[in-house]
């Protein structure tokens, strides 16, 4: 029997769930190997009580999220996150860099009652153990299918630990640092095929910190190319404000 999968969203723009709809070519094939029990973006029904694989998008921003995650972890044998928000806290986690109440007031108005029981925004793995992660903003559909395949087979799928440069070289891109741009590929986890640099846009670090990256050396590289070395940290914060939490 095909494993039952539920897809739920926390704080995010649901872009990664939209990406799943973009699997078009393989969507029907995918539905042959899984039993899609619930898909927050596309389902009108309720989440079933029993499921095997929980796919989570978005950052944790409320106590309700925390409770939901705990329930998912308890019920599902496999928890898989999709997207940067779930993986590193992403854009929502930027709020950690300022006073949270002040930030809410500034956005929603003084005394507004949105996000009841709000908590400091963070990644899913700060609340529960995560088995599989598809990083990126948004996720790559092929990578999603590959990680789902690993989950279905019960195989380990450690995220690559190396930075982006190698694969960027194989795409024959002229290094953006040599073209006057600050590219975060130096320290960002590889695996996306260096999509942005291949389109002439510098890497913005959406896949999180490469654990094997040499951040100190990367700052020196920036300095040697005539940039402010602190720009590396500042720009990297965009998707990685909760730096300690990056896995």
């Amino acid at each position: 029997m095909a494993p039952r999968v539920v897809v739920v969203g926390l704080a995010s723009d649901f872009g990664c769930q939209v990406q799943i709809t973009n699997i078009e070519d393989h969507l029907l094939e995918m539905l042959d190997v899984i039993d899609l029990g619930y898909w927050q973006l596309a389902s009108s029904g309720h989440m079933p009580a029993e499921y095997d694989i929980a796919v989570v998008e978005g950052a944790v921003t409320t106590l309700e999220h925390v409770e939901l995650l705990k329930r998912l972890r308890k019920t599902a044998s496999v928890v898989m996150t999709i997207g940067t928000c779930a993986h590193t806290g992403g854009i929502p986690a930027l709020a950690n860099r300022c006073d949270l109440d002040a930030a809410y007031s500034a956005v929603y108005g003084e005394g507004s009652d949105v996000a009841r029981g709000r908590c400091a925004p963070g990644p899913v793995h700060s609340v529960i153990d995560v088995d599989y992660q598809v990083p990126g903003c948004p996720i790559d559909t092929d990578e999603f299918l590959a990680v789902l395949s690993k989950a279905l087979q019960g195989l380990a799928d450690p995220l690559p630990g190396d930075p982006m440069c190698a694969v960027c070289k194989t795409k024959e891109n002229v290094c953006l640092l040599d073209r006057g741009e600050i590219c975060l590929g130096l320290v960002t986890r590889t695996g996306c095929g260096a999509k942005c640099p291949s389109l002439g846009r510098p890497c913005t670090g959406c896949r999180g910190l490469a654990p094997d990256a040499n951040f100190d050396a990367a700052r020196k590289v920036l300095a040697s190319k005539g940039f402010d070395p602190n720009e590396l940290d500042r720009r990297f914060d965009l998707y990685n404000a909760v730096r300690e939490g990056v896995r």
Binding site: E29, V33, Q153, A166, C168, D212, N214, A217
Partner: peptide
């Protein structure tokens, strides 16, 4: 930086990795 750029652009580096990729039908 342990980025591996040197190996990729090297005309004599030949090391490779091998991985299996399943179709969606598994």
């Amino acid at each position: 930086l342990s980025c591996g750029a040197c190996s990729m652009v090297c005309p004599t580096c030949y090391c490779f990795d091998v991985k299996d990729r399943l179709e969606v039908d598994q």
